[in-house]
């Protein structure tokens, strides 16, 4: 009994140490909210196009039966990080031929038009989510958020926040490659 108790502090220290190691891991983000959508079909939604824009709207049906994975990006003209992310997404479209679809979250159409006219429009379809209801269906907590959706309409990956900076771009590129590799 005594001998067992003598070992107890060591055991406690090991348990606490492991807990702290886990808690202090810089890779672990306590703000990270796991998405329930991963490996589920995309939620039901149907969004009209942004009035005055020459690309169609976006609905659930557009996300299934694609030849490969597509990228769905939730953005808004009032979102400053989206502006930085725009260049990265445009490069994905131009260089890698990614099919990029947009959800224009709680944005006035005229603001969205001006924003896209100024920066260019990499999206091949944009749904206008005026009241943010489609955003709730997707379980987003803010903009920007980016999803990778498989050709069959299954959500494969979710990125919260702007894909800006080397680490973020590398992470997203890897996820995209995995999505493409898994289907071909």
């Amino acid at each position: 009994m005594k001998r067992m108790l003598a070992g107890l502090p060591l055991v406690l220290a090991a348990i606490l140490g492991a807990f702290f190691l886990w808690g202090l891991d810089p890779e672990r983000d306590p703000n990270d909210i796991p998405s329930v959508l991963i490996s589920h079909p995309v939620p039901e939604f149907a969004l009209d196009p942004v009035p005055g824009l020459d690309v169609p709207g976006l609905a659930t049906a557009d996300l299934s039966g694609n030849p490969g994975p597509v990228v769905v990006n939730v953005f808004a003209s009032w979102c400053v990080p989206c502006k930085a992310e725009h260049a990265v997404l445009s490069r994905f479209v131009e260089r890698d031929g990614v099919r990029l679809l947009g959800i224009n979250y709680k944005d006035k159409p005229e603001d969205a038009l001006r924003w896209l006219a100024e920066l260019g429009n990499p999206y091949s379809a944009i749904g206008s989510d005026l009241d943010g209801r489609a955003g709730i269906e997707w379980g987003i907590s803010g903009v920007p958020e980016t999803f990778i959706v498989g050709g069959d309409g299954t959500v494969l990956y979710r990125y919260v926040g702007p894909i800006v900076g080397e680490d973020a771009v590398a992470k997203f590129t890897l996820a995209l490659q995995q999505a493409q590799g898994g289907l071909s």
């Binding site: 909210i33 796991p34 998405s35 329930v36 939620p43 709730i136 269906e137 997707w138 379980g139």
Partner: peptide
């Protein structure tokens, strides 16, 4: 109602 939102945002 709670289930509806739980289905979209998870346990969180």
């Amino acid at each position: 109602v709670v289930d509806y939102i739980h289905a979209r945002y998870g346990d969180f």
